[in-house]
Design a binder for these strands. Structure first.
Lengths: 296, 296
DNA sequence: ATAGTCATTCAAAATAATTGAATGATCTTG
DNA sequence: CAAGATCATTCAATTATTTTGAATGACTAT
């Protein structure tokens, strides 16, 4: 009456099924057969149903017993996993680590690191969000992510720890067919302003969107990611600054051309950000790796 | 050591969280506070971790304890649902009823019946497959479904129970723009053979496909369902027999025209089929309803 | 037929859970 | 700031539950 199904009973049910009889199950659990009968009886009276059909020599599962067995196994597994997860959590290994990756970073550059982590810690889930400009910072503050990688110009905040983890050079690009491609360089702001800028949308939800490398008064085409921005640049839909490592291939293949600007494209430092006080070991693992040998 | 997490402990954890303190939880469980301490201590020693932080006045969950609470609640719910499902199963209410609906039947005709059933038995899942010709029968024999509705010409089989549940009239149809539309009626087999037949593909996987209402030597266009067949007929892609209730609208709207044939279209009886010996109450519910007042 | 296996029952023994009183720590409130 | 209230823990005693072991009857295989 207190609890209708006890894990103990599900455990016994599993043992009976796997060993073929009450007696064999009893042996496998280092108990006596009557103890098995007792547990199954208790289960049956509690549920008010028959779990085994005893008309024959050996007891055989009823359909309801079959259901209890198969679904019960799921519950047993979930329970064991919960115990393991709780122990890991107590050991400061998070069950899940959520990472915001700034769109200036190429996700593929991080795959080897992720692969290494998941190999070492198969039970810990890793989730990667791609974020733009203030999006990473906001996600961190809102506790939607635990670590932000590759953020440029993070605001100062006492609750957020930062560490420089690389630098990014930008280059002004457009398609070879774009009118600006044949303009005299270095390009002035006025020359650029006459053409549509390709902008990756800030993923921040609440904070006022920042704009990076942008000239006031310029028409914009806003896209969702760096990858889309570069595709749009290649198709001549606009112009804009891109991280050099994102456009190396396109520049080498002639799908884009680089143009000097005045003032020149600024180099920016990229930061690793995490909430001060968070001491999860998975988080620490990534921080150590990313500031030890810089992936960029 | 025997079981690392007991449902009892998860229950207590839940009560502590919901009532705010060990003392309040004890009251809600009609036990004494020390019993709560005992259970939590047992959980902690079992897992080898702290579940509550007792530095302050009142005990507060550690991150690991939080994990145990939230995930543990899922397990408690799953366990209660399992108990309920086992009782229903023992009461001969199947956890799920799988129905094969022959393509000669319009699914919409059965929605009210399904709705009535799911309203009366919200916990029982209903799954409907649409099947063609031998497909329903095969799905039944293979135990992929429990009930087949609207099957024509079912083979005799000792293990399969059948009951007539309606009849279907067929009518030979084509688009008004189709060459046959202006041919002299009744159409002879030779006249029909010259034109492509629209055929719904038999969904049987192993048994040799049957063909319904088909003349040998006729070119075919095979489609996946009666709905597709009628759409293809309307677009003049072929000719063929259709159940009258499927094409009423199209005939009335002039999108299809009906043609007499010699020999004339045959009426077929439709059957309800289920495996002999299956006595589930959900199955019986549908059998009773479908043979009580015929939905067709 | 007979020896072996199987599940059950029941009383006894062993184990586990619960209680209640005592304790110290912390919070509330006047 | 002191007094009273609330909180969680401990420990020995009590109560409840589980496990055992021996006896029993039912079935199987040889």
């Amino acid at each position: 009456m207190s609890e209708s199904v006890r894990l103990e009973a599900l455990e016994v049910l599993d043992a009976i099924d796997r060993h073929g009889s009450f007696a064999a199950a009893a042996a496998s659990l280092y108990r006596v057969p009557s103890a098995i009968s007792y547990t199954i009886n208790q289960l049956e009276t509690e549920l008010g149903i028959r779990v085994f059909d005893r008309t024959g020599h050996r007891a055989v599962l009823t359909p309801a017993g079959q259901l209890l067995l198969t679904e019960g196994r799921r519950i047993l597994i979930a329970t064991r996993e919960l115990a393991a997860a709780a122990r890991r959590q107590a050991d400061h290994w998070e069950p899940e680590l959520k990472i915001a990756l700034d769109t200036t970073q190429k996700p593929a550059d991080f795959y080897p690191l992720i692969a290494e982590f998941t190999r070492a810690h198969p039970a810990i889930n890793v989730r990667i969000n791609e974020e733009v400009l203030a999006g990473s910072w906001e996600a961190l503050v809102d506790e939607r992510v635990d670590l932000a990688i590759g953020v440029t110009d993070p605001p100062a905040n006492a609750g957020i720890h930062r560490r420089q983890c690389g630098r990014i050079d930008f280059v002004f690009c457009c398609a070879p067919t774009h009118p600006l491609a044949s303009a005299p360089t270095p390009l002035t702001e006025d020359a650029i302003r006459a053409h549509r800028a390709l902008v990756v949308a800030d993923t921040a939800r609440q904070f006022s969107p920042r704009s990076g490398n942008l000239i006031d008064g310029q028409a914009r085409l806003t896209v969702a990611s760096m990858r889309t921005k570069i595709e749009a640049l290649e198709r001549g839909l606009g112009v804009g600054y891109c991280p050099t490592h994102w456009v190396d291939d396109a520049l080498a293949a002639g799908r884009l051309i680089a143009l000097e600007t005045m003032p020149p494209a600024t180099m920016r430092e990229t930061y690793l950000l995490w909430r001060r006080g968070e001491r999860g070991r998975a988080l620490q693992w990534f921080i150590d790796r990313l500031t030890g040998d810089l992936p960029d």
